[in-house]
């Protein structure tokens, strides 16, 4: 029996879709069977980030309206074995799906896969409620700016109200240089305010935009710091204990320290 995890944030543009695509790919790369579900009905783009746009034949809407079997609607990833995508319908809107229908899909998928990641739309309305309906766990994505943190706090309250547990926090786009200059909220401030378990910190990485535009998730580029961060989060999701390095600017001294601690 697998886990259903909703990836959500409240605010838009903080990296829900990017994180879903990369964590799904990373989990598949370490040998897990994974389905990523795009719950952003009417504004889908998980398929674009994963480069699977042209392969979609059926969507979750077709499954709900009994036009096809769930297994036939799953799109196989073209690069990694064991990774599937369930696309959202672009023609419908968010109110065309009911939470129970989403829950039924998640229940069916978790029986046959290790991980089901649900990419939630931004906002706290029906789209979010549908995405969270079938989830037992959540990943709250936030960036280190006050508006994203505020929305993450709001969404955490809603998730707790729904009984979603555990709720893990991913701190995305942290720029060590800006924290050092005092222009960015620090890692410990974010965790202190949200009071959630931090499962990973993804550094600001310009490669993300390039990889999104190419339709190749960042984790395939093994040298990028962002990719390494997502790989570590994926491993933590499977229960491995990997310490979270406090991000700092790379200098000679910290390089030496990293080298000694095997933190490279």
């Amino acid at each position: 029996m697998g886990k259903v995890i909703v990836v959500t944030s409240g605010k838009g543009g903080v990296g829900k879709t990017t994180s879903t695509a990369n964590l799904g790919t990373a989990l598949a790369l370490i040998g897990k069977t994974v389905v990523v579900i795009d719950a952003d009905v009417g504004l889908r783009n998980l398929d674009v980030v994963m480069g699977l746009e042209s392969r979609i034949v059926y969507t979750s809407m077709d499954v709900i309206e009994n036009r096809c079997e769930l297994s036939r609607a799953l799109v196989k990833d073209k690069r990694v074995e064991g990774l599937m995508l369930l696309a959202a319908s672009q023609k419908n809107n968010k109110d065309d799906i009911q939470p129970e229908q989403m829950k039924a899909i998640c229940t069916e998928l978790r029986a046959t896969h290790d991980f089901v990641l649900v990419d939630s739309p931004a906002g706290i309305e029906s789209g979010f409620r549908n995405a969270a309906a079938g989830a037992e766990e959540a990943l709250v994505i936030t960036t280190p700016d006050v508006s994203a943190i505020r929305d993450a706090d709001r969404i955490t309250g809603l998730l707790q109200h729904e009984g979603v547990e555990p709720i893990n926090l991913v701190l995305n786009r942290l720029s060590p240089e800006m924290v050092r200059k005092g222009n960015m909220v620090s890692q410990s401030d974010v965790v202190g305010l949200l009071n959630l378990k931090l499962i990973g910190v993804v550094p600001e990485d310009r490669e993300v935009i390039a990889s999104t535009n190419r339709g190749i998730p960042l984790v395939h580029n093994k040298n990028s710091p962002g990719a390494q961060a997502y790989m570590r989060i994926a491993k933590r999701l499977t229960g491995q204990r990997i310490p979270i390095p406090e991000l700092r600017e790379k200098g000679f001294f910290s390089n030496i320290l990293d080298w000694f601690s095997g933190n490279k």
């Binding site: 706290i124 505020r150 929305d151 706090d153 709001r154 955490t156 309250g157 809603l158 707790q160 009071n195």
Partner: peptide, 8 residues
Amino acid sequence: RETIRSGQ
């Protein structure tokens, strides 16, 4: 016995 979050 809990934290009051944004919107609550």
